[in-house]
């Protein structure tokens, strides 16, 4: 599992070679690895996108460049490579997109399709409003179902306070909806957050799951993947 973790971290942060025409440097901003890191600082493009009035129809058009990976209807893939975005809080989507653009969340695969050449701040607001309105059916990827009691116990103890009893999250607080998400994606991100690889993570969450084993995270992700979808 440790090996798997390393592999996943590599796949996630692995540098893709930069082509000659891509003159823009890969953005990098201080994250959770830095002293004085403040989670979800309200500034820059994030603030602009939150202030902008999003339009779902424009968002559907702008989302065309995203749906090659996140799939039609933003349902993602159950192999965990691309998360489900349908039904996610607009605030969360804005935070994650602007974090990727700013280099607070490392995602070289996504960057060219969410960077400044590809999307405007208004596009981000539009896409977020479009995605939040989409249904998230119960066909998301699940775990093996073998440790659900343990998963529930961990969730109720450490996760429900922020992500809510049924995984609805909390839009105004930027806590993601986790219900309807694919098991493999939940697990991959939980591992990355625990190990510090997801640099825009909330320190409260890192602290909450710091001592979790890989098996704990598997049980937890499996339990979450079975929440009733929106």
């Amino acid at each position: 599992m440790k090996k798997m973790t390393t592999l996943m971290a590599l796949a996630f942060t692995g540098a893709l070679s930069t082509p000659l025409w891509a003159a823009d440097a890969v953005p990098h901003e201080a994250g959770i690895e830095s002293e004085g890191y403040v989670w979800n600082k309200m500034e820059g493009e994030k603030l602009e996108a939150l202030k902008a009035r999003g339009d779902a129809l424009r968002g559907e058009i702008a989302f065309e460049i995203c749906q090659g990976c996140h799939r039609k209807g933003a349902l993602g893939r159950d192999d965990g490579t691309y998360p489900r975005l349908a039904g996610q809080h607009a605030s969360v989507l804005i935070k994650q997109m602007t974090d990727v653009r700013a280099g607070r969340r490392d995602n070289p695969k996504m960057l060219p399709f969410a960077g400044h050449d590809a999307l405007s701040v208004q596009d981000i607001a539009d896409i977020s409003v479009y995605l939040r309105s989409l249904p998230s059916p119960a066909d998301n990827g699940k775990g093996d179902g073998k440790a659900l009691t343990k998963g529930k116990q961990l969730y109720d103890k450490d996760c429900a306070t922020c992500h809510a009893d049924n995984g609805e999250g909390d839009g105004p607080k930027f806590y993601p909806r986790v219900s309807g998400q694919h098991y493999k994606y939940l697990l991959r991100e939980a591992v990355a957050i625990r190990d510090g690889a997801r640099r825009n993570a909330n320190p409260m969450m890192v602290k909450a799951i710091k001592k979790y084993s890989d098996q704990d995270l598997e049980a937890l992700s499996d339990y979450i993947s079975r929440f009733a979808s929106k």
């Binding site: 090659g68 990976c69 399709f113």
Partner: peptide, 14 residues
């Protein structure tokens, strides 16, 4: 379907 290993989106998306 694209190529998830190398991050190629499905062409059908656009």
């Amino acid at each position: 379907d694209g190529n998830t290993d190398s991050g190629i989106p499905a062409c059908a998306g656009c």
